[in-house]
């Protein structure tokens, strides 16, 4: 048989070339104006990128993000499992939690947690409803800007994670649960071994987005002087008046963090694609058993 290679010429696309030229020129112009702009103080920006106070703020931002996400995820799983419960009180409690914390602005919650001492001057462990107290603290000593920020961010995140986890659990084929129950697994074994690992495929991508969003949401903590990146940058520019330069410094670090997080997200997602994969990859794999002539 003769070979008939497809070596066809594509039709010209002048519209696309024009658009690319315009976009390219615009980018060059943008870079030029930014680089030569005397008001941006590049020397200051570079000097402050590695400043000890900035790096300290960066560390607080990372801590707040990671801790809030871990606690938020735990709260989210707990709430999502409560939502699946047969008990109306548990379901109601879970619904109340997500309703309230998704219904009020995070900014308000943060300020509220910071001022919790105005509502509850003392915090104690003991018998509730006026019983004896074992330990007691002054709320103002206990709730530092950091703990207030962590409380606000984590509890708010938990309400959103609950919805993400719930969607993940619902995405798992009910037959999976039945197959596990038929083997004699208990409720918690079904959840741990069968449902949650499969739900992760649906849970992980939006959780990655939440993580990246959280990196930047921590900047809201600056309203209660949380000592994270933006607060630190603000403190410095209040002293030296390099407002724009320090905002650029903070932005550069935020971009670095989100870029690293995006790369991490890619690898975590791949890990949870085990046994699935994209459609073309799956088709190729499914055909493999037949390619060798064996069934």
């Amino acid at each position: 048989m003769t070979e008939l290679p497809v070596d066809a010429v594509r039709p010209p696309r002048p519209g696309r070339w024009l658009a690319a030229a315009v976009a390219g020129l615009f980018l060059i112009w943008l870079a030029y104006t930014i680089i030569v702009n005397p008001n941006l103080h590049w020397d200051v920006i570079i000097a402050f990128l590695g400043d000890g106070r900035i790096l300290g703020g960066l560390w607080v931002t990372i801590q707040l993000t990671v801790l809030s996400m871990v606690i938020g995820l735990a709260l989210g799983v707990l709430t999502a499992v409560m939502q699946q419960s047969g008990d109306p009180v548990l379901r109601g409690a879970a619904a109340l939690y997500t309703w309230f914390f998704r219904g009020t602005p995070l900014l308000v919650q943060l300020i509220f947690w910071f001022n919790i001492g105005l509502v509850f001057p003392t915090i104690a462990i003991g018998i509730p409803f006026g019983g004896p107290k074992l330990v007691e603290w002054q709320a103002n000593e206990l709730v530092t800007p950091f703990t207030a920020a962590l409380l606000g961010l984590a509890i708010n995140e938990g309400a959103y994670m609950a919805e993400i986890v719930r969607a993940g659990i619902r995405s798992v084929d009910p037959g999976q649960r039945e197959a596990a129950e038929a083997l004699g697994m208990s409720h918690s074994q079904v959840l741990r071994r069968v449902v949650l690992p499969q739900a992760m495929r649906v849970i992980v991508p939006p959780t990655g987005n939440q993580f990246i969003s959280m990196l930047k949401t921590t900047s809201m903590v600056s309203v209660i002087a949380g000592a994270e990146l933006l607060t630190v940058a603000q403190r410095i520019y209040l002293g030296n008046f390099e407002v724009i330069a320090l905002l650029v410094v903070a932005s550069i670090w935020y971009v670095v963090l989100t870029t690293i997080a995006s790369v991490g997200q890619h690898f975590v997602e791949r890990r949870f694609e085990r046994g699935h994969g994209t459609l073309p990859a799956r088709v190729r794999r499914n055909l493999r058993p037949f390619a060798g002539g064996g069934v």
């Binding site: 084929d173 037959g175 039945e178 197959a179 038929a182 069968v194 690992p197 499969q198 085990r274 046994g275």
Partner: peptide, 12 residues
């Protein structure tokens, strides 16, 4: 033991 119409093997 139970065998289902749609197998329900654990895909992961």
């Amino acid at each position: 033991g139970m065998v289902f119409q749609r197998f329900h093997l654990f895909p992961h």
